[in-house]
Write a protein that binds this DNA or RNA. Structure first.
Lengths: 165, 165
DNA sequence: ACTGGATGGTTGCGCGCTGAAATACATGCA
DNA sequence: TGCATGTATTTCAGCGCGCAACCATCCAGT
């Protein structure tokens, strides 16, 4: 007994689906041009930049990005190659690893941030009224609550940069 | 001279970014379970199912999905392997090709649709008030207008099924 | 008719991200 | 000491995608 979508729901869903996909594609392309990395990797740098000591455990990175450990390993490996992240043993439990954001990594982030923020503004934020912005946040939180997710803004915001992660 | 995001903007943007990514992941997993194909391929079936004669030209598929020709070729190739789509020459201009949705393809779509609609309902539609639904549509259209995109709801809606594409 | 340039699609190839599974090693507990 | 658990890495394979090269067809100009 399927409850199909009525006209209103259908229109809203389709518009939303297409819009978010297109927006995502666009932001991804822009970010690639600005930072030469996929959004998911950029996200890791943002998380690190806002963490105390610019440091997080691998498992924490996995947690905040809702991803499997292997993905984090791969990603941090790439970032390490670029010299943007360094890995060190976690003193106290040598199974664990800490990922440090290096000065170079922070610099790269700071270099990319303006273009990324501009992109987010141009293709999303500046298109909306203040009212719509609030609505969008409410809607987003409804989704997040339902999916049982947590937004990493609960991270200690010691950000030396505003990367609009 | 970067205009950083203020607190309201930052919160909204982050919530939106995380919510849409998570939602997307979830819907993708569900769809994969229901239809054994990526959302982008499913989208093609939906387009075809709603087109007159369940038929579209390759270039039209490319247009409505904002994708390069090669992607469509690859995708339709896969769908053809499954017996869900058939390709025929376009009479009148033999350079062109028509993609037909087969009976099997339609059946597969109809089989997958209920679970997909349920998923969309569960993780998005049913979470929102009627008011929020309208807000979301407006916001989406703002994005679409700016990106110069078109939503395929301008397709002739002769749908024998409501797949919530 | 012939030819050169568009046009519509395909094919081959490789890139880059991802996850599953196997592995390695540390830890804590019986 | 043993063994399960926890943390992270590594290997491997798969996939979707785009680029570039290619092929077939159409069409305009001569």
């Amino acid at each position: 007994m399927t409850r199909w979508l009525d006209d209103d729901e259908q229109r809203a869903w389709r518009a939303f689906a297409v819009a978010t996909r297109l927006l995502n594609d666009r932001l991804e392309r822009d970010l690639l041009a600005a930072a030469d990395m996929p959004p998911t990797y950029y996200e890791l740098l943002v998380l690190l930049s806002e963490a105390p000591q610019r440091t997080l455990r691998m498992s924490e990175l996995a947690h905040w990005t809702n991803s499997k450990p292997s993905r984090i390993s791969h990603a941090v490996g790439k970032l390490e190659q670029k010299g943007w992240v360094r890995r060190e043993h976690f003193a106290g439990d040598r199974r664990g690893w800490l990922a440090f954001l290096t000065d170079e990594g922070l610099a790269a982030l700071q270099a990319a941030a303006p273009r990324h923020v501009a992109s987010v503004r141009e293709h999303l934020i500046d298109l909306l009224t203040r009212e719509q912005l609030r609505q969008l946040e409410d809607i987003s939180h409804a989704i997040l609550d339902h999916l049982g997710a947590s937004v990493p803004s609960s991270q200690p915001p010691t950000a030396p940069v505003d990367p609009a992660g």
